[in-house]
Design a protein around this nucleic acid. Structure first.
Lengths: 235, 235
DNA sequence: CTTTGACCTTGACTTAAGTCAAAAAACGGG
DNA sequence: CCCGTTTTTTGACTTAAGTCAAGGTCAAAG
C-alpha cells in the first residue's frame, strides 16, 4: 500500500515549478496545485496501478523510479517507459478519462506526487501554458514510442542492447566504464526479451571482446564495434 | 512527384471543418487555413517523405490512404499507422520542428492536403481550441502506440492476425464475410511480419477451420475460435 | 489471346530467441 | 557472518518466424 506522506504543500512548490509540465506557471497556481497534490511512497516492486484501471489522475516522480509496462497473459513484461525524478506520466489517461493502458510499478523505493484528475482538468482550462506543456510532453512520448517500435520490431536483441549501453554511456559522461541503471531482469523487460536471453547476449558480446561485465558494472572495450552493432538511425 | 492540384480554397472549407483537428474552428480561420493549404496527389507507392527529412508541415488525407512506417536497413518495413480520409498525421514533427521520425507513402492513389509548418504554428497561438484538438490527436496516437507495442511484442503472429480480422469485422458491420483493406504484403508489414509468414498463418487458420480465404475476401468460419486466439486485452 | 509484372504461396532450411530445469552468485536481513 | 531468498547464469531443447528459391495466380497491357 502506498503511504500518503504528511508533507506541507509549501515544500512542494519549488519542486513542481521545476518539472517540465508545470514550468512557467505563476506562483499562485503552483500553490493551488501543491494543495491538491498527494505525496505517496512506494516500496520496490509495489504497483501504482494496473492496466485497465480507471484513471483517477497522473503522477510526478519525486524520488526513485517508476516503470510503466504491459504484461502478457503468460506474465512476460514489456517495459514501455521508465520515469525518474521530475518526470510525469499517465497524463493521457488523466486527461482523456479512459482507463490506464498499461500498468505502473516502482522499480526501487519511490516517492511520487499524485494529482487527481478533476482539478487538473480545471487548471488546464485556466492555463493555456499548461496545455502547451502537455503538448510538449505528449510529443516527447510519441517520439519515444516510434523509436521503441522501431527498436523492438526491426532490430535484434544484441543490437538493442548495444544501443541501450551506448545511450547509457552518453548519459554517464561517455566514459568506457558504465553502471547499469536497471537490474538485468528489468533490463531484459526493457529490451523486450527475457533474462536468459539477455544473459546469453552479454556472454556473446564478452566473447567478441566488445565489453566486460562485472555485476552492474559494464566496461565497454570496443565502443566502435558496439556502435557498428547498434547502427542506430534517427531517434 | 506529387501533383499540386489547382483547387479553389473555398472548396476545401467544408472538408477541413469536418476533420477532428479543425472541428469547431470559426469560419474565417478555416478560410485562412484553406488558403495556406496545398493539395497534392500521389500515385500508389509514391513517397510523401522519408524518415529523417526535415519537417516542413503536416498532412490531412482527403482521399485514398497513406501509410506511415519505419524501414530497417535490410528493407523490412514496419507500418506504424495507416491514415484514411479525414485523418491527419505528422502533426508532431510539424509542431516540434524535429525531423519526421518515420517515412510516409501512399498505399493507393491518394489526395492529401499539406499545411506548412509556420502558419500552422501561428494559428495555434491564436486558437486555443486548436491546441485542444491537437492534444486529443496526440492522445489518440499515444494509445494507438501503446497498443501497437503490446501487440507486436507480447503476441504471436496468428494472434495478431486474428485480432486484426476481428477489428476489421467490427468495422465492416460484424458480418462473417470481410474484405481485407490491405494487400497481403502490406498487411504483413502492418502485423510486423513478412508475406511468407502471413501466408503460412492464413494457411494454418484455414486448416483449423477458423476461416476461408478467397483473394481479399475472408470468410470467418468460427468467430468464437478467433476471439479465443486473439484474446485481446484493453486497447 | 498471351505476355508481363506484381503479388502471393509453398517448400526446405536456418536462426533467433523462448522454455524448462538446475546450478551459481549476489543480496539482505536476523 | 550465516541463511534463505532473489537474481543471474548455463545447458539442453523447442519453436516461431525469417531466408532463399521456385512456382503459381491474376489482371492489365500489348
Amino acid at each position: 500500500m502506498p503511504q500518503p506522506q504528511p508533507l506541507s504543500p509549501l515544500d512542494l512548490i519549488p519542486f513542481l515549478g521545476e518539472t517540465l509540465l508545470f514550468a512557467g506557471l505563476p506562483e499562485f497556481q503552483l500553490l493551488k496545485l501543491a494543495t491538491l497534490a498527494i505525496v505517496q511512497t512506494y516500496d520496490k516492486g509495489e504497483s501504482l496501478f494496473q492496466q485497465g484501471d480507471a484513471a483517477t489522475g497522473f503522477f510526478i516522480v519525486q524520488a526513485g523510479r517508476i516503470k510503466v509496462f504491459k504484461v502478457a497473459q503468460d506474465g512476460r513484461e514489456q517495459i514501455l517507459h521508465i520515469f525518474g525524478e521530475g518526470n510525469h506520466f499517465a497524463e493521457v489517461p488523466a486527461w482523456d478519462g479512459h482507463p490506464y493502458p498499461a500498468a505502473a510499478a516502482a522499480i526501487e523505493p519511490a516517492t511520487v506526487v499524485f494529482f487527481p484528475r478533476q482539478p487538473f482538468l480545471q487548471l488546464l482550462e485556466q492555463q493555456p501554458d499548461l496545455a502547451i506543456n502537455l503538448l510538449k510532453s505528449f510529443a516527447r512520448h510519441l517520439r519515444h514510442f516510434s523509436n521503441l517500435v522501431d527498436t523492438l520490431t526491426l532490430h535484434e536483441v544484441p543490437t538493442r542492447l548495444a544501443n541501450y549501453l551506448l545511450h547509457l554511456r552518453e548519459q554517464q559522461g561517455s566514459a568506457e566504464q558504465i553502471t547499469l541503471d536497471l537490474s538485468k531482469g528489468q533490463l531484459a523487460a526493457r529490451l523486450g526479451t527475457i533474462p536468459e536471453t539477455l544473459s546469453r547476449v552479454f556472454a556473446k558480446l564478452k566473447r567478441q571482446q566488445l565489453l566486460a561485465v562485472n555485476g552492474n558494472q559494464i566496461h565497454l572495450l570496443n565502443v566502435e564495434g558496439l556502435k557498428q552493432l547498434a547502427d542506430v538511425d534517427i531517434p
